[in-house]
Every structure is written in C-alpha cells, then in structure tokens.
Design a protein around this nucleic acid. Structure first.
Length: 763
DNA sequence: TGTTCTATCTTTTTT
DNA sequence: AGATAGAACA
C-alpha cells in the first residue's frame, strides 16, 4: 500500500490506529490534512467502511474541498468500481447541519424550507425586536445584544435554557429581547448561523430516533481544527460519536484563533477527560518551513502559558533570516512592501506563491492602491462582499421571500423597493396588524388579498399598493415551480420594475448597479451549471442557490493558482501556505489588537499571539515583517510602537531594516504619476521622526502640483483620469464645479470632490 | 412620501 | 477619510 509508505512514523500510527477516540495534536505544517485524508482512505480501503458511513467536518468550504479532493485522489485508483465521491460526507459543520435540518427539522415544529439569516438579517431582527418591546436601542445597542445572543447560542443554550448568572434590570431586558428574537425567527421560519448547529443538537436531544439514525449511519466521525470548536459543536460531536466513540479529532491549541466566535480551547485540552480511552498522537515535525521560521515561531508561542508542552522541529534548511522593516508610516509601509515584492520576483520568486497578511481588513486598502498603481496582479479575499451590495441584497431579498414567504426581514426590505407607495407609516400600521394576528407579514397579505380572505382591514391609501405587491409576489411563487432560478431572477428584476427604475435613472451609479445585477444572474447560471454537472439527479433549486450564498465565502471560490499575490486577514490565512509571506502592521494596539481604553486581558493577548504564530507558520521560505512609526486611524495620525511580538523573536533570526530619512520623502517623490499629498501638519509627527526641518524643506510640497490642472475644465464626460487612491477611471458625469462622478475599474462609480482629491487627467 | 444634507461611527477577526 | 443612517426639508 504505497499510500502508507509516504507517511512518517507518527503519522502512520495515527492513520493505522483502529477503533475508539483519537486525538491528533498536529503542529503547524506537520501534515495533519495528510493524516486525515489518509485515515479516511484507509478506513474505506482497508476496513471496508462504506464512504457514506464517514462524516468528516471542517470549518471552511475550502478545507472541506481540499480534503475531499485528496481522499478522492487516493481512492479512485484503488477502488474505482465501488467508490463514489458523492457518498462522502466531507463538509463544513454548517453545511452538514443544514443538510440534516432540511430533512428533519420539522420534528421541532420548524419548516424544512427555512431561510438562513446572515449577520445583517440578524441585526434587522434585533432592531425590530427592540422596537416591538419599546426598548431604547441607545442603551441596549443592537450590536451588543447580537453578540451576546450569539455567544449564548454558541455555548449551547437557547432562550429557554439560558439563565444569566447575575440578575438585574439589564439582564431582564436582555432576556425579553432574546425571547422575542427567538419568537420572530421561528415565525419567519428562519435560522441564524448559531442555530444551524444548535437546532441540530436540539433535534438530536429531543428526537432520539433521528439521532439514532445518524449514529447508525456514521460509524466514523472526524473533525478538523478541533481547537476552534465551540461548545455547541462539541455537544454535536459528542452526540454523533455516541457509544461507539469512533471519533478522531485533529487540532493544535497554538492555532486557536476563534475565541471571539465561541471557540472553546478546553474542548481540545480536555479531550482525554471526555473520552478516557482516547489515544493521543503528537505530530511535531514540520515539513513546510525553514529552520529560521520554525524556531522564531516556537520562540514566540512559548510566551503563551495556556498550552500543552509541544516542540515543533524541522529537518529543513536554515533558510534566510526574517526581514523586519521599520516604516515611517502606512504609506511607506505599502511602498516598502511593493519594493520587496518586486525584488523577490526579480530573484525568481513566483507571484502566486506570495501572500500579504494583515490584522484588520481596513489595512488592505493602501496596499491595493499601491499594487494597482505598480501594475502588480493581486487577489483580495474577504472584506467587502459582492452579495452585500445594496441592489444585490434587494434582489436576493425577493428571492428569499419567494422561497420563504414568512421571511419578514426580506419582506420589510423590498416591500417598497422600487418605491411603490408603501412608506414607513403604512408599513408600521401593517406590522402592528400582523402582530395582532400573530402571523408573518406576507401571511397577513394572503389573509387579506388571497383567494379566500379571512381578514378585512383598512390599510388606507396603501391598500391598493399592498394588493399589487401581493399579486406580483404570487406570480413569482407560481413561476418558481416551473422555471430555472436564473430565469426567475430575470423575472424578478423585470416585473418588479427594478431594472426600469435603474435604467430610467441615468446616473452612473445606476449603471453599475445594473451591471451588478447582471453579475448576480451570472452567478446563478454558474451555480446551475455546476450543480447540474456534479449531480444531475438533484434539482436545481432556488433554495440551493440561496444556501450556497449563505454558507460559501469568496475565499472558497478563489483560484490559488492565479498569477497574483494574495491579500487577506490572518484569520483567512489559516490552513494555507505560501513561499513568501509579508505581515503588515506589527504595532502595539493594532497587533496585538487591543482597545486602549479597555483593560488588557492576558488571555486576549495570548490569542493574538497565536494569531501571529499562525501567520508566521504560513511561510515556507521567506518571511517579511513590517511596522510603521506613524499610522492614520479614522483619519487621525497616531504614533506607533512596534509590537511586543517582534521582541519575542530572538535577534539571531532577524535582519532589521531601519526607516531612513528617505522613507518619509519617498512618500512625496515616488508616487508615479501622482501629485504629492497634502502638506504635513507641523504638530505631532515632528516628534516621531526627529529630522531637522530643512532636511524636508527641499521636498516639493504643493508647488507644481496645482498647475497640473486648473479647476475642472480639464475633465469632461468620458475623459480618463487617475486618482491617487482608486487608480484609473472614466468621468461619467460632472455634477458641479467641484464634484465629479467617476467610474473606477473594478470599484464602480464614486463621487469625487476635486477639493479633496487630486485627480490627474491621462492620455 | 421621497430627497438631500448632516452627524455619527467605523476597525478586529467570520461560518 | 469614507460610508451610512437618521433627520430636516420639499
């Protein structure tokens, strides 16, 4: 069996071990995915376990896809006749639970056609609840209530089982909101993310027959990234493992970075207590990185106290030292980054094997601008999402309402989009009526305007409009049965008048919105093609598409082989690896990210340190770290101190590059084709960079720049311009003497004020 | 009821 | 600095 030969001794032991609970402590880059996939393959090939008896759970679709691909690769040669890929349940926690709930949630009195509410849907519900209960949202901010509710649910409790540990008026009100929230969700046939796991747990607890079915079916369960499981996921696995306890978990407590999402590090630390017969395997040999990188990483993580004793080692070469760049400010940082990227490429490094990591999404912007200006291909993951755009969300809300008429969040969103004369006042009245009848909004419409009206009520002037809306929606619901989702989406855009309202509006934004809708339709078409090819028996449903949108992130769809440097937060980087890694913003407050007005919790700093550890260990060959001495936050300049994490790397692994006088000057001089930025204030930054004034006096500040263009005459509709931040664009409209609408490649249309941003004509 | 201006907040990280 | 949500206005 050559698939066994390729493993090292420790890995092989873990793969070959038979029944019972197994904990695999796998350091970064020690081949944990390899062990998992080989174990699955081994169970199927050697122990003749049927593929559909195995359940393997991950956190991201990307990890699931990779694991699936690798299992398939091993097995399709060995067992071509009996092995069917589609029998494998290798998926994320959330998709697996959705699959279970779609077939069985009716036992809990929920509709199997439930809708999944995302973050912003959840927030809308909470706001509505606060309003229902007459609670001021300034005292009880929807955001804090949201995170509290999620926290409770992630810990495995719902509004019935949760008891606040301390009483008090705040707690009472929180509980009332929580209860109302649960009520609204149920009435809307909607589940939030936490519910997907929690309701599955409830289903198993309350309907033993269903649990037993799954326990009998899944004779082996495996969990990847076990350190990131929260309590409700832990309960889920415990139920599924049942008495057989064929549970295999893989994880590394040093890479636990999702505490804020409810991950409970105790799950992995206490595994042997939960499963006393557990066998433990430690994988400590790293195959990924150079010695320098591994030793630096080990040193950093050793500053954490909450960890098992574990030492990562490698037989790889020593490799290059880690480069550290002190930068004058974030502009200089971006500049030095590009400089390093270009150097690396000239030395033969591959662009698609490079990644830039940062702590917060907001940091990406400057880097993007710089990469674009220099013509370096890049791909950015996370941050603002396509599906979050206004017009896309509106259209999706129609689709969601068609799929689930009880979905009140979607109802409210689109009942007056495009405007059809149902304003806030009418809607408010209508909402009260719905509460009176204790039903969802659309259900009430049905009761008033449906074939056999049960309810008569005076909706005033809006009555006619409500009626029109109802019949429109009914026509969609009827059409849904017989046409493809991609045709339905066209029908929605046309018949609601959404397209007309956008094309009547000749503004450039409307134009780009139309394009986004076309793109949305295209993504439905792609879904249909993909699903059709994968699984011809499965019907191409609207629900399937909506589900995919809810559960699949853009990282999952990204193409790792594209010739582009990858930009992402460190959280997104977990599980990935690159030859060259660049980490930005290694400054106190930013990374470790602590809010200066709150007391610093040691446990939080430890989590940040694990995050840094994850970031370092992504690098195969070369690591470059950056920090800035000044950084603009919310438009205000701040001094910065380099991160304590830098000091935790022994000097011998570092090669330090100081910021020189030119770092600052470069900000003016080396911005190709761009005018210099505003003059520096003489205030604080003089202290941060104690250079004599006249050293800077020669830097051409504003001279020259203002003569490049005079007023706005140079810009006409259709002329090409260059913006310091957004890059190349085309003027779509001149609003007045100062304001232009400019369309930028890949970023849609922005309103530009000439007073504040320096536009330059090109060509 | 719909539009435009202003004030406020943002930045942790995501299935 | 920029986006957004609410308030004042037409």
């Amino acid at each position: 069996m050559d698939y066994i030969e390729t493993l090292n001794e420790k890995q092989r032991e873990a793969v070959l071990h038979g029944e019972g609970p197994i904990l695999i402590l796998a350091g970064a880059g020690s081949g944990k995915t390899r062990v998992l996939t080989h174990r699955i393959a081994h169970l199927i090939y050697q122990h003749r376990v049927a593929p559909d008896q195995i359940l393997a759970l991950t956190f991201t679709n990307k990890a699931a896809a990779e694991m699936r691909g690798r299992v398939v690769k091993v097995l399709e040669k060995l067992l071509p006749q009996i092995f069917r890929e589609r029998d494998l349940w290798i998926s994320t926690f959330h998709s697996a639970c959705v699959r279970i709930l779609r077939s069985d949630i009716h036992h809990l009195g929920y509709s199997n056609q439930f809708t999944i509410y995302d973050d912003s849907d959840q927030q809308s519900v909470i706001k509505a609840c606060l309003k229902d209960l007459n609670v001021s949202d300034s005292v009880y901010s929807p955001k804090s209530i949201q995170s509290r509710i999620n926290k409770v649910k992630n810990e495995g409790y719902d509004h019935l089982s949760y008891k606040p540990s301390f009483g008090g008026p705040y707690e009472d009100i929180f509980m009332r909101v929580f209860e109302r929230y649960a009520e609204v969700l149920k009435q809307s046939s909607a589940l939030d993310f936490a519910d997907l796991i929690l309701k599955t747990v409830h289903l198993f607890e309350q309907v033993p027959r269903v649990l037993q079915g799954y326990q009998e079916r899944f004779t082996y369960v495996l969990v990847d990234e076990y350190q990131d499981t929260n309590r409700s996921q832990y309960l889920l696995m415990k139920l599924l493992a049942g008495e057989r306890q064929n549970i295999c978990v893989v994880g590394d407590e040093d890479q636990s970075i999702y505490k804020w999402r409810g991950a409970d590090i105790r799950n992995i630390l206490n595994f042997e207590k939960d499963y006393p017969s557990a066998r433990i395997f430690k994988l400590e040999q790293n195959y990924r990185s150079t010695k320098n990188i591994i030793e630096a990483a080990s040193s950093v993580i050793s500053y954490n106290t909450e960890r098992r004793d574990k030492t990562l080692w490698t037989s790889n070469n020593e490799g290059e030292k880690i480069s550290l760049f002190e930068c004058y400010d974030e502009h200089d940082e971006a500049h030095k980054l590009i400089h390093e990227v270009t150097n690396a490429i000239n030395e033969g490094a591959a662009l698609n094997d490079m990644a830039v990591f940062y702590r917060t999404n907001a940091q990406s912007r400057l880097v993007e601008d710089m990469l674009r200006a220099k013509g370096v291909n890049y791909q950015i993951y996370g941050g603002l999402k396509f599906y979050d755009r206004l017009e896309v969300k509106d259209t999706l809300a129609y689709l969601k309402l068609i799929s689930n008429p009880s979905d009140d969040v979607s109802f409210r969103r689109i009942v007056n989009v495009p405007t059809r004369g149902i304003g806030a006042v009418s809607l408010e009245k209508f909402t009260l009526k719905a509460r009176e009848y204790d039903c969802s909004l659309y259900t009430l419409l049905g009761k008033i305007f449906g074939p056999d009206p049960e309810v008569v009520c005076d909706l005033g002037r809006g009555a006619k409009n409500f009626k029109t809306f109802f019949h429109l929606m009914e026509s969609f619901r009827a059409a849904k049965q017989s046409i493809l989702p991609s045709d339905l989406i066209n029908m929605v855009i046309e018949d609601t008048g959404y397209r007309k309202s956008l094309s009547d509006d000749h503004s450039p934004e409307a134009q780009s919105r139309l394009e986004n809708l076309a793109e949305l339709r295209q993504s439905v078409v792609e879904f249909e093609l993909r699903r059709g090819a994968e699984n011809p028996t499965q019907t191409l449903t609207l629900e399937g598409f909506l589900e995919e949108i809810a559960l699949v992130s853009d990282l999952d769809k990204a193409d790792p082989t594209a010739p582009a440097i990858k930009l992402m937060t460190i959280h997104m980087a977990k599980g990935l690896e690159f030859d060259d890694v660049f980490i930005l913003g290694l400054e106190e407050e930013l990374f470790p990210n602590v809010r200066p007005w709150e007391p610093e919790e040691p446990a939080d700093v430890e989590e940040e340190r694990r995050l840094f550890y994850v970031a370092i260990t992504r690098a195969r060959k070369k690591l470059r770290l950056f920090f800035a001495k000044n950084r603009t936050v919310f438009g205000n300049a701040h001094f910065r101190v380099s991160s304590r994490f830098i000091d935790e790397i022994p000097e011998q692994y570092l090669e330090k590059n100081k910021a020189d006088y030119f770092s600052r000057r470069r900000n003016y001089l080396e911005r190709p084709g761009l005018p210099p930025r505003k003059a520096w204030g003489r205030s604080q930054d003089e202290f941060a960079d104690p250079v004599p004034d006249d050293d800077y006096a020669q830097v051409p500040f504003d001279e020259g720049s203002s003569t490049e263009f005079e007023g706005q005459e140079a810009f006409k509709r259709g002329s090409k311009v260059l913006h310091p931040a957004f890059g190349e664009g085309i003027v779509r409209q001149c609003l007045d003497k100062d304001k232009l609408m400019v369309e930028f490649r890949g970023q849609g249309v922005k309103k530009i004020s000439l007073k504040f941003s320096h536009l330059k004509g090109i060509e």
